[in-house]
């Protein structure tokens, strides 16, 4: 990590000086890794109208954490990933097999998951407060080892993304058209849902369950206002997410606020700005 600290010393910030505020430097690296991956997957979530779905995945991940706690695991992240992948898989199957409206299915799952999570977490009179960190998130507490783990998971998701993007795009444009070209739409939806479940779960404790969905949806929604092709859409989403991530971290330091929510507020400001100028790009 020393190379990273050396680079940052060139910056004119108080916290960036040698030996100062290592946690800020760690957090900055984590944000630079996290936000672009969220933005890329977010473009497809917005294409497919799955914003509510990705929100529900966070709830599933929370239940996974509670189950992990119950099993006495020191690091509940493993059980959280497992549970939220199963959760994503179930929602996708039921959405496909039943004629019920998608948001109803998601609503049912989402509320059941969060209720189960709270039930398990408080079972036997335990206090809920230790789980608060998952709700609000604390990127400043991330350690180099955890950044390494995050980098590996995000790298795997990116490689996967590289190979399935075209087919997912086609499925999102028209499932019948995709089917006529030999694409098994159901399995692509499942795989995509699982990828989103994985990144939401591994990032949840740093960003916070309450705002994590906006990391996925807001940059893409803002980019969509002014983009005219997939290339512009993706590049803009990545730029917006990096910009709000880095600016949000620095501002949260000045204002002494929670980092996750500061980042989201900047993303929303970008969204409304692009929304007002969208007609010039139409």
């Amino acid at each position: 990590m020393n190379w990273w600290y050396k680079i940052l010393e060139a910056l004119p910030f108080e916290w960036a000086q040698e030996g100062q505020m290592i946690f800020m430097k760690n957090a900055l690296l984590a944000i630079i890794l996290l936000t672009p991956v969220f933005a890329l997957l977010g473009t497809m979530i917005v294409n497919n109208g799955m914003a509510f779905f990705s929100d529900a995945l966070g709830h599933g991940a929370f239940t996974g954490v509670a189950i992990g706690g119950l099993l006495g695991l020191a690091e509940p992240i493993g059980s959280a990933v497992a549970f939220s992948v199963i959760f994503a898989f179930l929602i996708t199957i039921i959405r496909h097999k039943s004629k019920m409206a998608g948001d109803t299915v998601i609503g049912v799952f989402s509320s059941s998951a969060i209720a189960l999570g709270i039930f398990l977490a408080t079972l036997g009179g335990k206090s809920f407060t230790k789980l608060n960190s998952y709700l609000v998130g604390d990127i400043l507490s991330i350690a180099p080892r955890e950044i390494g783990f995050l980098a590996i998971v995000l790298g795997i998701v990116l490689i996967f993304w590289f190979f399935v993007f075209n087919r997912l795009l086609l499925v999102s444009i028209n499932p019948s058209l995709a089917g006529s070209r030999g694409i098994n739409t159901f399995w692509y939806e499942v795989v995509f849902s699982c990828a989103v479940a994985v990144i939401v779960t591994v990032s949840m404790s740093w960003i916070g369950l309450l705002v994590i969905n906006s990391f996925l949806v807001l940059p893409a929604a803002a980019a969509r206002n002014i983009a005219r092709s997939q290339r512009q859409y993706h590049l803009l989403a990545v730029v917006f997410s990096l910009l709000s991530g880095v600016a949000g971290l620095i501002l949260s330091y000045s204002f002494e606020t929670a980092t996750g929510s500061t980042i989201v507020l900047i993303s929303s400001a970008i969204f409304f700005t692009t929304w007002f100028v969208r007609k010039r790009f139409a």
Binding site: F162, F165, R231, L235
Partner: peptide, 14 residues
């Protein structure tokens, strides 16, 4: 984008 998504192996936007 639509055509590249159908015929190219690599992401149409990249």
């Amino acid at each position: 984008d639509l055509f590249l998504a159908c015929r190219s192996k690599y992401p149409a936007w990249l």
